[in-house]
Design a protein around this nucleic acid. Structure first.
Lengths: 206, 206
DNA sequence: GAGCGAAACGGGGTAAAGTCCGTTTCATCG
DNA sequence: CGATGAAACGGACTTTACCCCGTTTCGCTC
């Protein structure tokens, strides 16, 4: 029985350089064309690299966007895992749930285009987000001791309620959402965050 | 100002015949290859028609699956709009909410492959489902007079909690879900239905 | 600083969705 | 019936994600 990964065989210098170049070019293209128009060929050409390289680096189109989100996602998760309460550990679980949802809503909404482009269209879960969100919500639900029959499943559904709107269901033409936001004199983020809070508070019987 | 559609210019005979043929062929191909492997070219060829015809008929790949679901979806909606309580009108709104979610869960799960293939990967909402589900949930939430600050947004999020798992988030390799189902000695449908019920009951303060 | 194995690169190749437009077929009306 | 305009058809064409594999570069070792 051997240790699987003694060292994650450190990335080669050229590879690292190219990844930077690609991410940088990607950001530029997104800024000037929008995520829709970023194509693998286009990106490769504009970065002065081969198409094969792009795929080797990111595996899939969505992979590029995931990579772009990665640094921020790390910071977000760090804030949750070891930051200040109520988002971080230490606060009451229900308060943490509320804080998590509010924060996550704004996080996703602020990066909606890229986040949406980062969801893999085939294969497993919309990667990245849910992978962290679901277990976290599950843990907090259990800690909160709300007498729920099946916290796991509920965590699954709450994850969907939280990330679904920004990631998937909000793909409805933006107008609908924005219209409602205007009618309610609040931005969409606030609406969703408040909705989440309501959901959790009721769930907790407050 | 003229009346927009005096008559929805009745479908031409050949068009109707071809649509049947295509739907029929599609069903056959799904049964024997799975939804993944159903391609527009393949379908056209196997039905002995041109590719252009397939697109004219269904607009998009997802459109085929939507068409396949359509009849059943109609029946489902009819049961909700004018069937027997508690799914249909007449029962207490909260009971209707619970019934709706339970029924919808099973409906979607029983057709998961096709339902998933029917979601449009670009453009507006995952068509079909949410378009009906969201307003319906919204209506029931309002009727229930639960003192919710913003039933509309909540309806949006609950729709995501309800349809997200079967349609999107459950794309996680089936194993995960099934493992949990086994561990909990219940099928996934029951788990999700119970989860939904819990969510609504707590929301209603029961 | 030359050799070597592994990793990265490049870009042509494939498959599948979706578009276009010239041709064919249908339903209607004289 | 036969003409006629609208709708449907077909299949070549375009675009893109993703694959493959021969070639190049890197980093290490002696």
């Amino acid at each position: 029985m051997d240790v699987p990964f003694g060292k994650p065989p450190v990335e080669r210098a050229d590879a690292a350089r190219n990844r930077e170049a690609l991410l940088c070019t990607a950001r530029a293209m997104i800024a000037e064309l929008g995520t829709e128009k970023v194509t693998m060929d286009g990106l490769a050409e504009r970065a002065g690299l081969g198409k094969g390289t792009v795929f080797r680096r990111f595996g899939t189109r969505a992979g590029i966007f995931r990579a772009l989100l990665d640094a921020e996602e790390q910071r977000f998760q760090a804030a949750v895992l070891s930051g200040a309460p109520p988002l971080g550990p230490g606060a009451d679980p229900v308060d943490r749930l509320i804080a998590y949802g509010r924060e996550r809503t704004h996080f996703l909404l602020a990066r909606q285009d890229i986040a949406r482009a980062a969801v893999e269209r085939k294969g497993p879960v919309p990667a990245g987000g849910p992978v962290f969100t679901q277990p976290h919500i599950g843990m907090l639900l259990r800690q909160a001791r709300l007498g729920l029959p099946d916290p796991e499943t509920l965590a699954f559904q709450l994850t969907s309620a939280l990330e679904g709107p920004p990631l998937v269901f909000l793909s409805m033409d933006r107008s609908t959402a924005e219209q409602r936001a205007e009618r309610c004199q609040g931005d969409l983020g606030a609406l969703l965050a408040d909705g989440w809070q309501t959901l959790i508070e009721r769930l907790a019987g407050r």
